[in-house]
Simulated scan of single mutants.
Amino acid sequence: MKTALCYGDSLSWGYDPEGGVRHAYEDRWTSVLQAALGSQAAIIAEGLNGRTTVWDDYLAPADRNGARILPCILSTHAPLDLVIFMLGTNDMKPQICGKAFGARRGVERLIEIVRYHAYPTAADAPDILIVAPPSICETADPDFSAMFAGSIQESQMLAPLYADLADQLGCGFFDAGAVAKTSPLDGIHLDAVNTKAIGKGLEPIVRMMLGL
Rank of each mutant, 00 (worst) to 15 (best):
G38L: 02
L161A: 13
G14Y: 03
Q156E: 12
F85H: 10
L33P: 06
P126V: 06
N194I: 04
I136R: 13
G177N: 08
L158F: 11
T52H: 05
I111Q: 01
F101W: 08
A125W: 12
A180F: 02
L82S: 10
M1P: 08
N194R: 15
G88Y: 07
D141P: 01
C6P: 08
H77I: 07
Y162A: 08
G8V: 03
Q156V: 01
E46L: 09
G201H: 10
A118N: 15
C6L: 15
P79D: 07
D186H: 04
A123H: 09
T139H: 15
G98K: 01
S39I: 00
G66C: 04
E154A: 08
L161H: 07
I73T: 11
T30Y: 12
S135Y: 03
V32M: 06
P204N: 07
T76Q: 15
I44M: 05
K181L: 14
D164R: 14
V32T: 04
A180W: 01
S183T: 09
K200W: 13
V107R: 04
R22F: 11
A163F: 12
A166K: 13
I43D: 02
T139A: 13
I152W: 03
N49L: 13
E203T: 09
H23G: 12
P184W: 07
G102P: 00
T76R: 15
C97E: 15
L5D: 00
V193L: 14
